[in-house]
Amino acid sequence: MRSNLNEEQLLEKSRWLRINILKMLSKAGSGHPGGSLSAIDILGVLYNNVLQHDPENPHWKERDRLILSKGHICPALYAVLADCGYFHEDELNGLRKYGSMLQGHPCMNKTPGVEVSGGSLGQGLSIATGIALGGRMNQEDFRVYCLMGDGEIQEGQIWEAAMAAGHYKLDHLCGIVDYNGMQIDGAVDEVMTINPCKDKWLAFNWNVIEVDGHDVLKVEEAFKQAEAHKGKPTVIIANTVKGKGVSFMENSAAWHGAAPNHAQLEEALTGLEIKRGVDTK
């Protein structure tokens, strides 16, 4: 399924997904809005215009796979999966509640459309590399995408996986770094710099594309370039804004892992309502 939405439709989709993210987090009373909002435009583009997938048949063998390595932003993934029809939107109300299919971090055996369980940072790129290797051995031509956080790539295992994917020239693997510059303790540059980020990936034999992670058309174009690039895996370094779309959450580490209360939700929704049909950049 590819919807091939135009820019206006993608932006409207993003606005709606942001509203759902905020509502579900507020209802849950805990969770991670900052990274969910920075990555949602990328996920919206992926699930509407890039991935070959079928919400009616989540285990379709030939589907493209998205591995969410930064598992804590699963509210963004859940919003997109519900929007695609993997499960009913009412399920979003159960986020983080006992008995819900929507766990605090992704669980593949509970949630249709979630490819892997995770939340312990740094593990997704290895899994994505294994899926890409298995696909190649099986002579299946699906693509594998892996969404990572910028703080997350401080984990050593990411670079073990990067080395292996480069070594095996997995050009059907595409990593995305949600480079919002913030992590729990503050600015990534101050906590533990990941720079020069681009040079690191180049040194591990990856093709690198840098893009504005909120410019939906450029993000889509980056995915096309990644698919066209042969002989190496590609990483898209997506420059994003933590908490994007909610003025009081933007560029704030405090909103990494705190849910909005009722009044804050109202304020956020009012801001997003005003943006209906308007470019959210």
Binding site: E115, V116, G122, Q123, L125, S126, I127, A128, T129, G130, I131, A132, L133, G134, G135, M137, N138, E140, G156, Q157, E160, A161, M163, A164
Partner: peptide, 27 residues
């Protein structure tokens, strides 16, 4: 053709095996 060299990287070795298992392999 069914042997995959991972090098000295235990965490990656397990993670890649997990991915392989998701494509029907028995790693």
């Amino acid at each position: 053709d069914r042997f995959i060299s991972i090098g000295i990287a235990e965490q990656n070795q397990v993670g890649i095996a997990a991915g392989l298992s998701l494509t029907g392999k028995v790693p």
